[in-house]
Design a protein around this nucleic acid. Sequence first.
DNA 1: CCCACTGTTTGACAACCATCCAACTATCCG
DNA 2: CGGATAGTTGGATGGTTGTCAAACAGTGGG
Lengths: 105, 105
Amino acid sequence: MRALPHPATEDIELTEVLRALADPVRLAVVARLAAEGELTCGGLSGQVGVHKSTASHHLRTLREAGVVMTRQEGRQKFMSLRRDDLDARFPGLLDSVLTAAAVHV
Amino acid sequence: MRALPHPATEDIELTEVLRALADPVRLAVVARLAAEGELTCGGLSGQVGVHKSTASHHLRTLREAGVVMTRQEGRQKFMSLRRDDLDARFPGLLDSVLTAAAVHV
DNA sequence: CCCACTGTTTGACAACCATCCAACTATCCG
DNA sequence: CGGATAGTTGGATGGTTGTCAAACAGTGGG
């Protein structure tokens, strides 16, 4: 397996993060990750109701923006939020988005 | 003059706000509004360095997302942030974005 | 009333994006 | 090895977006 590219913490761009979060599907993904810790691509595809390739595309967007990280285990890839990295770089941002998403979705 | 459409506070959508902020030009506009209080369309066009019609388009996007409000005075239109409305609906969101934008731009 | 000024609207254009399907890669299990 | 499972990639498509330029519309001053 080749390593998937994750941006370093100091390379996470604010506009990229905002753009990654500014999509209903991806916002739902992030909210679910915040609630459940880790999820696989296939799990998301089923829960969110999109084709698996679409789910893969969204996860790629989130990963390249620095919002999630990927851990491979066998043939599954577990996604999780980069909470500490995001908090370190943009304090309070993820929390306020998650709070807003929890209330208003 | 006809009134420009502003969404009610309770109609402001999270994804719309995030999408409005997920553009470098609009993020710069919001940061400048936070620093200077009020600005006109023409003022922004000059400061941000885009055509006036482009500035008008971005301000429209921000207005329709509920991020800014417009006050007409003579032939000028003064834009300002809807801080209270945004804080009421999405607590902490605007502040964290502004802090992040101030540090990382 | 005409002109200068401030924004908006429209058209055009290139770039991007979300989505699906199909084919492919990679991994695990008999 | 062969079959099943998990994701990725490429193509196709329809829709959205950011930008400029040019034309339009509303407002105030002489």
